[in-house]
Each structure stands twice: as C-alpha cells, then as structure tokens.
Design a protein around this nucleic acid. Structure first.
Length: 478
RNA sequence: GGCGGGGUGGCCAAGUGGUAAGGCAGAGGACUGCAAAUCCUCCAUCACGGGUUCGAUUCCCGUCCCCGCCUCCA
C-alpha cells in the first residue's frame, strides 16, 4: 500500500508516483505579505506541512518550496495608507508570517523564494511566450493570449467558451481578448517598478509561481499545492504560462485544501470575517489548533467554532496525559514495537488514502485507549504490558508529533521546565496534604489541592501516592 | 447561468453494495474519602422521492437545501 492523492487536475485519486524515485518535490503557494495571517492560511499551511511530513516519514527525500508574494497591488495600497514603502510592508509581514508558521509548528520551506528576487526568470518566461506568439505587449503591459493555449481550463474544468465574463476592468482596454491576463503590468506613477524589455513595470501575480516553481523544482515537479480558491484563475494561469512556453508538464499532482468557514461563509480578508492566526495559536495552543485543522479531511470545508476547538483541546489533553503516564511507567523499558503494529497500520492506511487525517487521528485514539488499558499492568511492572505501553508512547510521538505535528511531547517538556521550578514547593505542600489525609482531615487536604489547582498544578491521588503536573493553561499564561 | 464539492447520531467527523470508525457532549457503572485520570456499557439506519439489486447509507435518476469557484483570496 502506498500514498494516493486526490489530483484536482484529473479529478480523481491517483497513486503518488514521483518524478524521481524516492524523492518528492512540492511547491505550495505562499502568502501575499500584505497583512497578518488568519486561520485560513493556517489550515493550508498545516495541510501541506502534514503532507510534507508524511512524505518524509514514508521515506521520501522531500524538497519543499513556498514562495512569498512581496509585490502586489494590495501591498502597494497598504504602503500608501501607512505612508511608507511597499518593501517595508512586505518585509514586516514576511517576518510575521514566518513567526506564525514557526508557532504553528510548520516546518520551514527548503526554499522561500521572493517574487522580487525572480524578475529575471519571470521576464525570460514572458519573453519566451511573446516569441512564440502566445503573449503580447500592449502599452507597457504584457498579456497572455489565453486562446493560444489549448489546455486552458483543464484544471478548473472550464471551457473557454463559457468564460466570457472574465474581463477585469483594469487594463482590459489593452487586451485583445477579455480572457487574456496580465503577466507584466506597466508602472504607474509612484509604484515600485523594474526595467523590462516592455518598459518599467512589475510582474503580474501568476507569473511568479510559474517561474519560481520551475526554477527551484524543475519542470514536471511532483506536487503543486494551495487553497481551493486558487484553482481558478491562479493555478490555471500558472499551468498555461509554463506549459504554453515549454510544451511539457508543469506539475504532476495538484492538491488543494478546502476553505475555513466562518458560520456559513468562507473566511476571507475581503469579507473581513477573519480570526488571526497568531491569536488562535496563542489562545488554543498549537497542538489543539492543529488537531482541529486535522479534524476534517483536507479538501472539505472546515467551520470555525470555538466549541470544536475546545473538543480538540480535550483530545490533546488526553494524548498528553497518556504520554505522561506511559513515560513515567516505562522508564528504560524496551518497547515492543510489534504490539502497536495494527495501529501503525491503521494510521498509515488512513494517511495513504489521500491524507485522511480524521481517520488517522482515530487510529491514534484507538492506540491510546489500548495503551491506557494496559497502563495499570505496566505501572505494576509487568514486562509485557510495559513493553507494549512503551511502544504506544513511542508511536504516539512518532505519528502524532513527527507526522501530524501535534506537539504532544513538547507540551510535556514545557511543563517539565515549570515543574522543576515548582517542585520543592509543591512537594512540601503535598506532604502536608498527605498528613492531613492520613488524619482524615479532608477539609485541609482539599484546600491544599484547590490552592495548587488555582496555581495551575493538578494533583492526582494514585494508589502509590499523589502525582502532580503543571496544567497546560498555566503554560499558556507563563 | 456555468463548473465543482457537500447533506451521516445532540455536535464534529470517517466509511462501506450486505444492516455505520473515531472524538466531543450525555447517561449508567468500576476506581477514589471526594476528586482527577482511566476503563467498561449505553446512545444513528446515513436530506427526501423513485429506480437498479437477493440486498443501498454506499450505484443511477429526480427534488430540496448548503458551500466554493467563475473578481483579489489559503
């Protein structure tokens, strides 16, 4: 069994067969750095981060490229509003983006190309298209001649004949055909511009991805990703530009993630119904947030709902709690890997099936339930149970953290730092509490437990004595 | 209008031509001084109407409803 991906281009699930044995190349459309990221961006980031991690875990050598669109109308507009330079805006939000990705536990791309760093590549591609008669310059703009590209519409499933209304007002007077789109835009006064054979100007949006993907991953790279809302026109145009110029395949698989919705409508900057990513990470924590993202298959819409985020928090807590207990109970125990085989298999089968994350998480749940069942025996020192529990803990970290990026172990480690600081104090309070309990002075013992709880320390009475740990909420405040 | 994706228990969400994973919530039970954590049990006939079939939630047709794209958008 191996990975099958739903390919938007062919409208079907297809076995993943990379261009080059053992290697996987991915290009995912990155942000236009004009404002801070919202949780819709976060979803896309997590979806492709998980794809990337899963490919790596499956043995592929992964090369992951994600661009940054650092020149664009909206950046210019924003700069104007703030009376500053577009590049200042772009730099600010690029940093913010990277910080958010980091906080989201999204692995950094191997290459993060900037549009403004690839003017030459873009101009070469445009020039090639003009040479072939597939593009034309008009008054400093350059347009792609859509009707010259036979495959136009193949990704989004549209027919050129059905697309008459696609005219955008700006620049349409120079177009031969309303369907044509701009690859190069003539400079307007006060806008950033670069020299080109067609005059001072700046690149259109679609051209950067065609040029940068081909440059950093080569022709016919494996997977092109992005949000479903980019299928048309952005990705359609990327394909047109590359394939018209080179007459070969641009990307082998097209993977798109579904939108995050706010109530019954899409979350989007233009609608203004956004929840910022930074806020979400701060408020819910990475693990729960990613668990929420992964609670729906990546192509279906996902509705923002704080109740569902709370569910995800509960789930994350369950995983964390199990890992904590399992680790305590199985220090130095040799894991019995075979015992978790069926769970690993279920997880893999789910992920192989077009990254079925909800089913994969379900496999984790089943593994944790089985582990919890064995926990008492493991705590009693039974070798078989211990080995199985140790294996479950390892698998949870491998699948949950390394593949899904749930930061289960990390939350334990964060807690450990705080716990070591609090240790002396808590231990002494617990000793008092034990004395009170021994004397059946439960009022005192409960008061101590409540105090500790108020300070973020959770106490559990076990047959072998009390245990305590720092609660996740304490960490968020710390 | 065109193209695409959906409607599964209180909520979220997988899935399959042969009577429906997992989670959250809820109920009951075990454990506990009480909790916490954990475990066990219970909790759906899959929008509606036809059709195909021995048998459909799963295939086909129709109806209703929702969403996305068709303009910037992850």
């Amino acid at each position: 069994m191996s990975l099958v991906l739903y390919d938007t281009l062919q409208r079907a699930k297809r076995p993943f067969e990379p261009r080059e044995e053992g290697k996987a190349s991915l290009y995912v459309c990155g942000p236009t750095v004009q404002s801070d990221a919202h949780i819709g961006h976060g979803r896309a980031a997590v979806v492709f981060d998980v794809l990337r991690r899963y490919l790596a875990a499956s043995g592929y050598e992964v090369r992951f490229v994600q661009n940054v669109t650092d020149i664009d109308d909206k950046i210019i507009m924003r700069a104007r509003r703030e009376k500053t330079e577009p590049s200042i805006i772009a730099t600010r939000y690029t940093r913010l983006w990277n910080r958010s990705m980091d906080a989201l536990n999204v692995l950094a791309p191997d290459v993060q190309p900037l549009a403004t760093g690839h003017l030459i590549e873009m101009q070469q591609l445009i020039a090639a298209l003009i040479d072939q008669g597939k593009a034309y310059a008009a008054d400093g703009d350059v347009f792609f001649r859509v009707r010259t590209f036979e495959g136009y519409g193949k990704l989004s499933g549209r027919k050129v004949e059905d697309m008459q209304q696609g005219e955008d007002v700006v620049g349409s007077d120079h177009k031969e055909d309303p369907l044509d789109f701009a690859m190069w835009k003539a400079a307007k006064p006060g806008e950033p511009s670069w020299p080109s054979p067609w005059g001072e100007g700046r690149p259109g949006w679609h051209i950067e991805c065609s040029a940068m993907a081909a440059k950093h991953l080569g022709h016919g790279f494996d997977i092109h990703g992005g949000g479903l809302d980019l299928v048309f026109p952005h990705h359609e145009n990327e394909i047109a530009q590359h394939e018209a110029a080179h007459d070969d395949t641009f990307a082998r698989y097209w993977v798109h993630n579904g939108m995050v919705r706010m109530g019954e409508e899409k979350m989007s900057k233009s609608i203004g119904n956004v929840v910022s990513l930074e806020e979400a990470v701060d408020g819910w924590g990475v693990g729960p947030l990613r668990l929420w993202y992964l609670s729906a298959q990546h192509r279906t819409p996902l509705t923002f709902d704080s109740e569902r985020l709370r569910d995800a928090t509960t789930v994350h807590h369950r995983f964390t709690t199990f890992l904590r207990s399992a680790r305590r109970a199985t220090h130095g125990v040799d894991p019995d890997t075979a015992s978790v085989g069926p769970h690993l298999e279920a997880f893999r089968a789910a992920m192989d099936d077009d990254l079925n994350a909800p089913a994969a998480v379900a496999a984790l749940h089943e593994m944790v339930t089985a582990g919890n069942e064995l926990l008492p025996s493991a705590e009693a020192g039974k070798p078989e149970a211990s080995a199985a529990v140790a294996a479950s803990a390892d698998a949870l970290v491998h699948l949950g953290d390394e593949v899904l990026g749930l930061a289960i172990e990390a939350s334990l480690e964060d807690a450990a730092g705080l716990e070591s600081q609090l240790s002396t104090l808590v231990e002494s309070l617990l000793q008092q509490r034990q004395e009170a309990r021994a004397a059946k002075d439960f009022a005192t013992s409960d008061a101590i437990r409540d105090q500790l709880a108020a300070a973020g320390v959770v106490v559990e009475d076990r047959p072998d004595g009390p245990r305590w740990y720092a609660a996740a909420s304490t960490l968020a405040d710390a």
